[in-house]
Design a binder for these strands. Structure first.
Lengths: 144, 144
DNA sequence: AATACAAAAGTAACAAAGTTGCAGTTGAGC
DNA sequence: GCTCAACTGCAACTTTGTTACTTTTGTATT
């Protein structure tokens, strides 16, 4: 039975990335996260002393390889979440809505909720779609 | 017949804001823009010597007053667009999709295209929605 | 039209987030 | 166990935006 570490190794090599301590830790952090994380949030969860520049470069190459995806936020920070198993550099299946809680600020990937399509005026060619909901999440509902 | 300047004056006073040179210029720039602008893009279009801090404060108060709205982007910059006539601090009618061109990078407000709703798992309470499409806009279509 | 006062502007210093260039290190295939 | 491109680490920097504080100004009132 494959351990969590095995899975990380496999994921990296499947995407043509080298096995390095930083990459394994970053991937671990994102895989364990229940919601999208910003660069500095990831940094805080990494082993102390991990270089910030290396982290940003790691995130960039992970994104290019289709390992993680950018999650849009209503503020000016970029957040990332681990892609579901089917993603690759060639084909991103990131067709789900995101939900941002205005209380805890967490952004959830609602993998089971697909983004509805819209009809656009002629001449607009759509390549990708992002749908971000904001409101109050399960955890932050006021007690009844 | 009301001039463009008259309209600016009226818009500011209707929202309880004072008439100042910076506010008039910022509002003018946003009203004239065909697409959403970032802080620094607005700064470039203002009269030379306009203070950057004042600009950011102006944007903040415009947003709070419902004169402009934040437009989410897939990058880490905040962009703003002038609200349509019906918005106020109390009621924002910002229920339209946005379209980002991957070639010219412009973000258009498609005021005529409403955001479709989705059904969420129980316990998620939705307050607002953002829908950002990406692709190629009218201007950037390859010649046929 | 002078006054008063809060709202807005200006100035300086700072902070967070992310990038670039370059030298050194290391994983992985031969 | 060599080789080399891929990756890391350091320094210095840029961009974007903020905070604290002082000065100026728009507007309502007399």
């Amino acid at each position: 039975m494959p351990t969590s570490a095995d899975r990380l190794v496999r994921t990296l090599s499947q995407h043509g990335l080298r096995q390095t301590p930083v990459r394994r830790s970053v991937l671990q952090v994102l895989a364990d996260a229940a919601f999208a994380l910003s660069g500095s949030e990831i940094e805080q969860q990494l082993p102390a002393g991990t270089d910030r520049i290396t982290l940003y470069r790691t995130l960039k190459s992970f994104e290019e390889s289709g390992l993680i995806h950018r999650v849009i936020d209503s503020t000016d920070v970029v957040r990332y979440a681990a892609c579901s198993i089917e993603c690759s550099a060639e084909a991103h299946f990131d067709n789900h809505v995101h939900f941002k809680c205005t209380i805890c600020q967490h952004i959830y990937c609602l993998n089971q909720v697909a983004i509805p399509t819209v009809t656009l005026p002629a001449q607009f060619q759509v390549v990708s779609r992002d749908y971000l909901l904001a409101g109050v999440c399960r955890e932050c509902q006021p007690a009844v």
